[in-house]
Design a binder for these strands. Structure first.
Lengths: 164, 164
DNA sequence: TTTTTAGTTCTTAATTAAAAGAACTAACTA
DNA sequence: TAGTTAGTTCTTTTAATTAAGAACTAAAAA
C-alpha cells in the first residue's frame, strides 16, 4: 500500500535516468540497490537536504527499505544528515565533499590482498622459480602502487592551489 | 554422486586455507565462489598446469560448476590454458604475470563514473554553486587520478630495472 | 561402428539477498 | 492522556545466485 502524502519531490526524466545509472554503478561496487539510489537522489536532486519521507516517496520505497538504505549509506559515510531546531526530522544530504578521500582510501583494502599474495609466495614450492617470481612481482607492484596513491592526492592538492 | 578416479591433487592444510581466503577475497570483488577458488588453486598448487578433472576433483565441484567457473576466469583473462600435442585435454594455469596490468586497468572503469558525475554536474540547478563545485572537484580529481596511474606503472618499471 | 574422453548446456533445487508490510517504540503535541 | 510523527525492527514474500545432476555434443580411440 502507498500512503502517499505527496512528499515526493518532482524530478525530470533526465534526473530519473541519471539516478538509475548511478544506482547501477553502485550495485557494481557492492552497494545494495535501494541504498545506491538514495545516494544518487541526494546528489541529483535540486533540493540538497531531503527528509525520510521525501526520499521514500520520491523513490517509491517502503519504510523499511528506506530506513535500511539510509543507514547503510550513513554507516559507509557516503551521506550524512543535519537537524533543525524545533524540528524532529533529520535532513539527509550527500557527502560528496568527502568522496575524494574515500576514492583514494578504497584502494587500501588491496593491502589485505597484497599480504595474502605474500603468504602464498611464502609457502610455494621452490620447484617453480619463474612463477614464484611473478607472484613476488605482483605483490611488490601492488605494494608500490598503494604507496603512490597518497602522493597523487598531494600532487593534486598543490596543483589545484596554484591554478586558483 | 562423486565419480572420483582420483585425479585430485594433494594439498596441505595451509594450502587449503589460503585457497579459501583467496576465494573470499574474490567473492568480495564480484567473482563467483567456484571461479574464485579455481583461480586460487591455480596460484597455490605446486603443479602449475591442471586439467579439468584435477580441478574438479581437488575442489570437489560438479562438472557444471567447474565448467562455468573455468569459463568465467578464462573470459576475464585471469587464467589461461595450454594444450599438448597428442593430448585432447586442456591444461589450465594462472595468468598471474598479466595481473599487474589488470590491476592498473581495473581503475579505468571509473572513467564511466567520472563521465556520469560530469553529466550530473551538467544538469544540476545553478542555485547550489557550492555543491556543484564539490561535484566538479570530485570528477576532476578522479580524472586526474586515473591519468596518474599509467605514470605509476612506468615509474615502477624503470625502478625495477635499475635495481636489478 | 561403438565407446571413451573432455567437456558444455539445460533443468532443477538450495541458498541468499532485497524489499514489502505490519507491528513496534520513543519523543513530541493537542 | 490520546494521538501523531519519525522512524526502527521483525516477519514474510519475491527475486536472484549458485551449484548439482543429468542429458547432450564433438572429437578421438578401439
Amino acid at each position: 500500500m502507498k500512503i502517499c502524502k505527496n512528499n515526493a519531490i518532482p524530478l525530470s526524466d533526465k534526473q530519473l535516468e541519471l539516478i538509475e545509472r548511478f544506482g547501477v554503478f553502485g550495485n557494481e561496487h557492492g552497494i545494495p540497490p535501494a541504498a545506491a539510489r538514495i545516494s544518487a537522489l541526494l546528489i541529483i536532486s535540486d533540493k540538497l537536504e531531503l527528509t525520510f519521507d521525501e526520499i521514500r516517496e520520491t523513490l517509491n520505497l517502503s519504510k523499511s527499505a528506506t530506513s535500511n538504505g539510509i543507514n547503510f549509506m550513513l554507516l559507509t559515510r557516503r551521506i550524512a544528515f543535519v537537524t533543525k531546531t524545533g524540528d524532529r526530522k533529520r535532513y539527509f544530504k550527500s557527502n560528496v565533499e568527502s568522496w575524494k578521500e574515500d576514492f583514494s582510501n578504497q584502494f587500501q583494502n588491496h593491502n589485505a590482498f597484497c599480504e595474502l599474495l605474500k603468504e602464498i609466495e611464502g609457502i610455494r614450492t621452490t620447484e617453480t622459480p619463474d612463477f614464484n617470481q611473478a607472484i613476488e612481482e605482483l605483490h611488490s607492484f601492488i605494494h608500490f602502487f598503494l604507496g603512490e596513491i597518497p602522493k597523487i592526492y598531494q600532487k593534486w592538492e598543490t596543483q589545484r592551489k596554484t591554478i586558483q
